[in-house]
Write a protein that binds this DNA or RNA. Structure first.
Length: 747
DNA sequence: ACCTCAAACATTTTT
DNA sequence: TGTTTGAGGT
């Protein structure tokens, strides 16, 4: 017991063995921060602390999942399941579902995503007859979000003169009205947006002492990863929860704070020191991840920031290769160079696609890389952008699910009431909406009582509304009886979506149809992989806060990773390319006026650099295609800030020099879009089918949940291929190979 | 109520 | 450039 700590260095060990009382771990990039957190939890468990009493808040659900697995291995016990571990949002959503009635919500409240919130704001602005150019949806959304993250409710807003003045100057005199209405409408829809999950948790702890005591006594040990990226409301929640035992451990790095636009506040680190004056501080400064040149370059960059804590990151690793800075003629040229570099490294060194990451400032930059990779046959996966659950057709189906579970969900209602078209148009919807506002009830209530409403709606339309209500009511009834899979299938068929999509033979339509099938298969997998029967609401709870990163598929294992720098936080790769190193792009145009914004961009670049283990490539283009035309670009100021001794300037070798690259690009792009109009990383490809072929009956396999077993037989083909597996501990299971993490141990 | 086409708009980062 | 929105026709 406890000797697993031998894997740690002296500093790490000290931090991991911290037992009681508050502590702060300041940890540079690659210093084994997550490792310390993991070992500390395992250590606590080994000292007899029950996993039930440990709360660990991580930045992504994926990080939580991996940590849980490692803790299980370390402590050798199978009780890590009882740890409360996940993102702030997912952990608090779980608490809120348990305590929902205290806050007057049903436990099956909907979680509105950004799109839902924006649609709601758009509707409110329209209803109130406000100028949509002044009351811009995205601006309002951000403003409301930042208010909530600072625990300023619509009522509190009226007490902040400076806020009101700021809105008056921006000619948004009605902002308070919009904010109030937004909050009311969310409540009326039994919905919480992302920020409400935090806000309402704080309200719960603040206004309900019995709940506060319950969770204070439950979570006797609290650990928080990436503390530098917590915001004010998260700080308030943590402070409340930790007040009784003060066994709070935060881990972070001020130099990697990159989420201030989301309300993250370095002040939280400073406040920690005053809130818990007897805290113990640990510093992890040795970098185990990156080569010497990379560490040196990162240090030389971050030196340019005025505001930062005293810390020296160093490494014993070899100097390694110099960092390559590469100039390209255009964004497409840049992408081709990167594709060629990836291929040449693969040829000369022992490496895999998964060892490469392409990092960029904005999501839009992925497109030209994608084109170059598709052309050269480099397999890749994209994180961020539109997640699977946000794709239009998927969200349409999910909206039926949502409405069936929570009939008040107005955004879901608006989405599906006339999809597929059933003769309930915008005029009717408008009338219902106005009536709902007038009577201060939900739109669903108006529809439920449509025959008694004095509305100028044609009787034929009234009947359509009645039919629609009957259908949803039926689904709602079934949702308590049927399993998630059975009901999901029934909803897709009965609602007419199945029929509608099947008729569409265009490539896009076929793709949409496949996505719905993938969704249904996912639900099936969800049902089959749980011991107790799962209802549709369980599935919806599970996916509400999931990102693409959280349910990475086995198929995507060996691919080059494309992601924004923000999304790359906490990850590492042997080969890293940071692209678009240009003024106005990185640093972003929006940030160059304010020094604090600029410092955040610099920290962002610091994060990007320190993702690299062996080699780092930085590139910029002289011309970039933006807003429909080529724009001349200057190299980023950050390049000049890097220590020259770490850099190697490389003149580009263009493999297509003899051809004008524009025309080559256009030609390729056209021919490609004809063949393959829309590729999503989850779409099956040859690579995957090959992989699925390798599952045979008799193979010994390992599953992440069920442990070891062997394949009894294999059924189906292509992407619906499944294996019937006899597991040692949990018996027989039917697993869809496309989805499950089934590793072959022995063939 | 629904479909079609042209004008307008867009690019910061995310749970 | 690609997507979304709204006006106008059916």
């Amino acid at each position: 017991m406890g000797d697993f700590l031998k894997d740690l260095n002296a500093e790490q060990k000290k931090a991991a063995q911290h037992f009681d009382g508050p502590c702060m771990v300041i940890a540079g990039p690659g210093s084994g921060k997550t490792r310390v957190l993991t070992y500390r939890i395992a250590y606590l468990i080994s000292k007899g602390i029950s996993p039930f009493n440990i709360l660990a808040l991580t930045f992504t659900n994926k990080a939580a999942k991996e940590m849980r697995k490692r803790i299980e291995n370390l402590s050798g016990e199978n009780n890590s399941y009882n740890l409360w571990m996940g993102t702030f949002h997912s952990v608090f959503a779980r608490i809120l579902r348990i305590e929902s009635e205290k806050l007057n919500y049903p436990s099956d409240f909907t979680i509105y995503d950004t799109e839902d919130s924006k649609n709601l704001i758009k509707n409110i602005v329209k209803e109130k007859g406000l100028d949509k150019d002044i009351y811009k949806t995205s601006v309002l959304k951000n403003r409301i979000s930042s208010l909530k993250n600072n625990f300023i409710t619509p009522d509190d807003y009226l007490n902040h003169i400076e806020l009101i003045e700021a809105d008056n100057i921006a000619k948004r005199n009605e902002f308070s009205n919009v904010y109030t209405t937004y909050a009311q409408r969310c409540k009326q829809s039994s919905a919480m947006d992302f920020d409400d999950l935090l806000l309402n948790t704080y309200k719960l702890l603040n206004e309900h002492p019995e709940s506060l005591h319950k969770y204070q006594n439950k979570f006797t040990y609290i650990l928080i990863d990436e503390y530098q990226d917590t915001n004010h409301i998260q700080y308030l929640i943590i402070k409340k929860l930790a007040a009784l035992n003060e066994n709070i451990c935060v881990v972070g790095d001020d130099a990697q704070s990159i989420y201030s636009f989301r309300g993250a506040n370095i002040q939280n680190i400073l406040d920690f020191k005053t809130d818990y004056p007897d805290y113990v501080e640990y510093k992890l400064e040795q970098n185990y991840r990156s080569s010497g040149n990379i560490v040196d370059a990162a240090n030389s960059l971050i030196k340019n920031n005025k505001k930062q804590f005293d810390k020296t990151v160093w490494t014993r690793n070899n100097k390694g290769n110099l960092i390559v800075v590469c100039k390209a003629q255009s964004d497409n040229h840049e992408s081709r160079l990167i594709a060629n570099t990836v291929l040449s490294i693969l040829k000369s060194k022992k490496s895999n696609y998964k060892d490469f990451a392409i990092l960029y400032r904005t999501n839009a930059q992925s497109r030209s890389i994608e084109d170059a990779f598709r052309r050269t046959g480099i397999p890749y996966k994209i994180y961020g952008g539109l997640s699977f659950y946000q794709r239009r057709e998927v969200k349409d189906v999910l909206s039926y699910f949502r409405l069936s579970i929570n009939q008040s969900d107005e955004e879901a209602l608006r989405r599906v009431i006339n999809y597929p078209a059933r003769g309930i148009g915008s005029t009717t919807l408008q009338k219902i909406s106005i009536q709902a506002v007038k009577k201060e009830v939900s739109m669903w209530e108006i529809i439920s009582n449509i025959e008694n409403e004095e509305l100028n709606i044609h009787s034929r339309t009234r009947n359509k509304l009645k039919e629609f209500k009957q259908m949803i009511d039926y689904f709602t009834n079934q949702s308590n009886i049927k399993s998630a899979y059975n009901l999901a299938e029934e909803i897709v068929k009965n609602s007419g979506i199945y029929h509608q999509l099947k008729q569409d033979k265009t490539p896009e339509g076929v793709n949409r149809f496949e996505n719905i099938q993938e969704l249904i298969n996912g639900i099936k997998y969800f049902c089959e992989n749980n011991t107790e029967e799962k209802k549709l609401k369980d599935f919806m709870h599970e996916i509400a806060l999931m990102t693409d990163q959280d349910n990475e598929k086995d198929i995507d294992y060996n691919k080059v990773t494309l992601m924004t720098i923000h999304a790359s936080k906490g990850l590492e790769f042997p080969y890293v390319f940071v692209i678009g190193m240009e003024e106005n792009l990185f640093p972003s145009m929006m940030s160059i006026e304010s020094s604090s914004d600029l410092e955040e961009e610099r920290r962002l670049f610091y994060v990007a650099i320190t993702r690299a283990e062996n080699r780092l490539f930085l590139s910029y283009a002289v011309n970039r295609f933006r807003w429909g035309q080529y724009i001349q670009c200057e190299p980023s100021r950050f390049l000049a800030e890097l220590d020259k001794n770490c850099l190697e300037k490389q003149e580009p070798i263009d493999m297509h020099k003899k051809q004008p690259y524009n025309s080559v690009y256009r030609y390729i792009k056209k021919s490609h879009s004809n063949q393959n109009p829309s590729t999503h990383s989850t779409k099956p490809n040859n690579n995957q089918t090959k992989k699925l072929e390798s599952y045979n009956s008799g193979s010994k396999v390992q599953h992440s949940h069920f442990g070891k077993g062997f394949i009894i037989r294999v059924e189906g083909s292509g992407s619906s291929k499944k294996a019937i597996v006899q597991f040692e501990k949990v018996g027989q299971k039917h697993l869809l190979l496309k989805f499950c993490n089934l590793k072959i141990i022995d063939n």
